[in-house]
Amino acid sequence: MNVLVCVKRVPATAGHIALSADSQEIDTRYLGFTVSPHEECAVEEAVRLIEKHGGSSTVLTLGPEVAIDQLRDAMALGIERAILLETDGREWDPVATAAAIVEAIEAERAAGRSYDLVMFGNESADSAGYQIGVRVADALDLPCVTGIKALEIGDGEAMVRRQTEAGWETAELSLPAVLTVKEGINLPRYPSLPGRLRAKKKEIERIKPQWQDGGLEKIRLKLPVQVEHSVEILGKNGDAGAQVVELFQRLRLL
């Protein structure tokens, strides 16, 4: 089977978020970059599917040229091919992003490469539009399930499960299909050194899609208002045991 997995380069944020002077972006001067956690799992799932069922895997991203790093990370884990939909660094909204991905998939099909499965993360860690996978499925007239946490491939069909507050729900759908993945579907592997070296030598296919106004225009970013707040230090190490127990009693937990 042929699997396409779509990822997005996002900053690896830690304890704090700081904004750029013009409030248009996160200040990334001191940050590394990664892909969204759900997408790490989508990449891992794609690699496992090909290991199990044979076929080929491709990773695609829409982003600036530096997003090649994230494509190579995916190839280091076992994805074979990579496609960069290269942008000028501007942010693309969901409509524009989905349209560029659809166009790329159609170009692939015209070149004789069709996909049985197109995978996404359920939502990106940063802009979190919760819609790219659904839009791509709709445009390609494919069935789609979002937020899956288990996947089995049968004869021309996929069995998926996703978690709800009450337990699980399941669906069976025929391939080709679009699936968006949630973290927890698997535990992604770490790249091996030979994997990294192999990925470094691989060619990246590049397409420059046309930017469009998708109708959701970022004006500025802002940090949520922080409520004034102080912390009470109860003590150090084991000496704090009595104070902690006293706190539990105060909160009526004991």
Partner: peptide, 28 residues
């Protein structure tokens, strides 16, 4: 003591998890 969690918490104990919990659990 400088971890982001400490400044966002209402209460904090500065110390090793295992040492703190073994004392807390024993007292309970």
């Amino acid at each position: 003591a400088a971890a982001p969690i400490v400044e966002q918490a209402d209460y904090a104990v500065i110390g090793d998890v295992q040492k703190v919990l073994s004392s807390v659990n024993a007292q309970i």
